[in-house]
Design a binder for these strands. Structure first.
Lengths: 138, 138
DNA sequence: CTGTGTGCAAAACGTTTGCATGCCT
DNA sequence: AGGCATGCAAACGTTTTGCACACAG
């Protein structure tokens, strides 16, 4: 995700508006490495801006995703999580507490489709999900 | 997934019963490489066994998952998919039509957590999700 | 002023559960 | 005969949508 100032410009260039709710959501996501769900974002925004609605959270997250500012993580079977770090990286999720951590190693030199599939698919990215138990839960 | 005969024995050894509905679900999953969702399994069973209920599909898939006979794939943001191939392998999903294909290359020699994280997590497995477009959708 | 954003309520969606009945072993 | 399995309907949690009103640009 870009800085809040750059994001503001990005919004404007798309004919979108900067509202207090959006600003709050941006600030909560900026540099956030906890991979929050929509509900977690909602709770944190609500503390500071108690009248915000869930609808606004969902719609803003959708907007940010469509602008390519955040990534939707499909790794927890129960709900979606959001990651403001859009650079390629990987994740490890604890089977017990469901906490998601980043894995920054660059595996790309070793990972590509077998030649036999190369003509069948046009690959844009890949993501590795590690599963296991974190120290607390083990 | 094991063959239908072996599965029948596995069920019995767990005090579970072989019913016509289960047999039908087993046969549809056996050697199935299409990574069906619960609904796709339901539709296919219903063609042959029209009175089957969605509940039975869900409960049987849960049972098979708990027995370790099938794997639940968290790769499509919209719904869960099921894979009777429980050997480690990877997947590629088309962003457009959502079709899931297998990737059988063994990347394990190259993939492990960075040393700095090794003490934080006890990793049991990893899975690579490739994203792209299939030939039809490109 | 115009049109996008907000927030409420309700709907939608995939999935799970409670319970009475059915049927495999 | 006993207990697991089935199927219906209802509940569930997450996410989406319709709509009237609010407000940023």
């Amino acid at each position: 995700m870009e800085t809040v100032e750059k994001l503001t410009r990005t919004l404007k260039s798309h004919g979108l508006k900067l509202t207090p709710q959006r600003l709050m959501i941006f600030k909560i996501l900026e540099d956030n490495i906890s991979h929050p769900s929509a509900e977690e974002v909602f709770k944190r925004v609500k503390k500071i801006y108690p009248t915000v609605s869930f609808t606004t959270i969902y719609k803003t997250l959708e907007t940010l995703r469509d602008l390519g500012e955040i990534k939707e993580l499909i790794i927890d079977e129960d709900r979606k999580h959001y990651d403001p770090n859009t650079k390629p990286h990987h994740h490890i999720i604890c089977k017990v507490c469901k906490k998601i951590n980043d894995v920054f190693e660059d595996f790309s030199p070793h990972i590509k489709l077998p030649d036999s599939m190369g003509s069948e698919f046009d690959v844009s990215c890949f993501q590795i999900s590690f599963h296991g138990k974190c120290r607390n839960c083990n």
